[in-house]
Design a protein around this nucleic acid. Structure first.
Lengths: 186, 186
DNA sequence: GTCTATAGGCAGATAGAC
DNA sequence: GTCTATCTGCCTATAGAC
């Protein structure tokens, strides 16, 4: 019973993560999520009281994924970790061109609403920035670390917006090459 | 009769531009636009057959504004024009932190839908890129001009996404400073 | 050209049987 | 815990009087 419980809940979140990434949070209906997860519409409300609660679950799932990803980099040096992070964006260039950055597009959309989800969504960027800052600090960048983290994330976000809007995955490789050179020169 | 006609139509577009910028295109209803423009709801359909047609009008209005802006820079040198462009983002830092880049957030949202508006919205970025490319070409950058244009627009978009999501207008000044230095060094 | 009233559909959310 | 049926409200779009 607990198993099927978490199974369904997890399937719902996974479906919500994917559909929201592809079509946006507002454009994804609970019926869409239920169908994708193969769960009856009304049953969603046993797991989530409101649609916004699903939004919170999406944020948490993405945070978990991010933590899992950075943990896999724990054996590397700070500089190698940062390089691995930007390398990841090259590998996901096709998805970036199709739907943009999963974190950036979600945050942008949610922040236009101004509702209670806004604060929760901010954690996604804040968490990424904190991790990047820690890597730059590990590189000996001291007080500049935060600024460098913002600069790096900003560059990746801009690249994603353009690759998405111009539907050009090749743009990712070009911009990332410049970023890697920038990282090496630090 | 023609006057009041264009008046109303123009008021509707202006209201749509503003509300869509603040809350997103999908989250803005025709009723919202009608109320803001002080036009009865049903009367919208005399000017626009569908909501998507309002989206197209939004794109066109923004393109006009962009052309008007670049025309005001015609007396300057190519480098001064680019500097004026990035300077503009500093002046609009408060709005950027509140609602993001008007062009970037609109394009991001529309591109998730995949509808017929998508192509139209692309013109916004394409037009900006073409203009930037022409300035870099005027600087003697030749074949590198397109890449430089993409890099500049990408940096501005990334900055906007972060300023928006972190609600931090101060971030704009910091990033633009780096961009201005980059421009001077070209 | 302008406006009111409303159709028709789909969204989020709930009730209640099982 | 699960699922069907349904409520309520808002959305886009239309009909039709003026």
């Amino acid at each position: 019973m607990l198993k099927s419980n978490t199974d369904k809940r997890s399937r719902l979140i996974e479906a919500a993560v994917m559909l929201t990434y592809r079509h946006g949070f507002g454009a994804t209906s609970l019926a869409d999520i239920a169908r994708e997860a193969d769960v009856p519409l009304g049953n969603i409300y046993y797991y989530f009281k409101t649609k916004d609660e699903i939004g919170e679950a999406i944020v948490e799932r993405r945070l978990e994924r991010f933590r899992a990803f950075t943990q896999r980099l724990s054996a590397l040096s700070p500089k190698e970790r940062l390089e691995a992070f930007v390398q990841m964006t090259i590998e996901s260039a096709p998805e970036l061109a199709k739907s943009g950055c999963p974190v950036g597009t979600f945050c942008s959309e949610i922040h236009k609403g101004g509702g209670p989800l806004t604060e929760k969504a901010s954690h996604l960027f804040a968490g990424t920035l904190d991790w990047m800052e820690a890597q730059f600090a590990g590189l000996g960048k001291g007080a500049d670390s935060r600024k460098l983290a913002i600069h790096l994330l900003s560059a990746l976000q801009g690249m994603s917006v353009l690759a998405h809007t111009l539907r050009d995955p090749g743009l990712v490789a070009t911009e990332v090459e410049g970023l890697k050179e920038w990282l090496r020169g630090l």
